[in-house]
Amino acid sequence: MHGLINRSLQGFLRDTYGPALWSRIAEAAGVGAEGFEAMLTYEDDLTDRVIEAAADALAKPREALLEDLGIYLVSLEPLRRLLRFGGVDYVDFLQTVDELPERARLAVADIGLPDLILDAPEPDQFTLHFAAGHPGFAPVFAGILRAMADDYGAFALVDLDGERKVKVELLQTAYASGRAFDLARPEDA
């Protein structure tokens, strides 16, 4: 698993639950004292051990923990901005969400996100299938899609459907005002 993904997991656990708990999880999982390095690649096993140790320590189901990771990712401003490049509104975003792995590869060629297939049987129904890859991606994406609905000010039900499927039911596209997004980078403004 790419270091960026492992480091996201580490950042999520440390920022949300404190450095002491992260240290305990890292030790239990066999992660070195320095933690993960963003630009290195690690064995999938190690990532799984971190997830398992964290779920254990927090007495939380694995899926719920990974959904929270997805929500945490959207709370990081640079990442939220990159996601907002996906569309002008939530529907636009959903319609191009299957381009996300490709966008990620554009940024970091060996990031290793699994391919997504988007299925939209009804205008307000979206299903995201994860063709292959680690089963942890579907719950993380569920968290991301839920947080992005909030970010766009849309009202949607996002649910995990089995190991490799996320369902989105759009109830209202303009439910709240959503958060601002400017194409120009804020520090340049």
């Binding site: 963003a38 630009m39 640079p78 990159l82 490049f85 966008r103 554009l106 940024a107 980078r185």
Partner: peptide, 15 residues
Amino acid sequence: ELLYLTEVKAAVMGE
């Protein structure tokens, strides 16, 4: 996409 790449590059360079 160019703007997206500019931001991504900045983020990766930051890392």
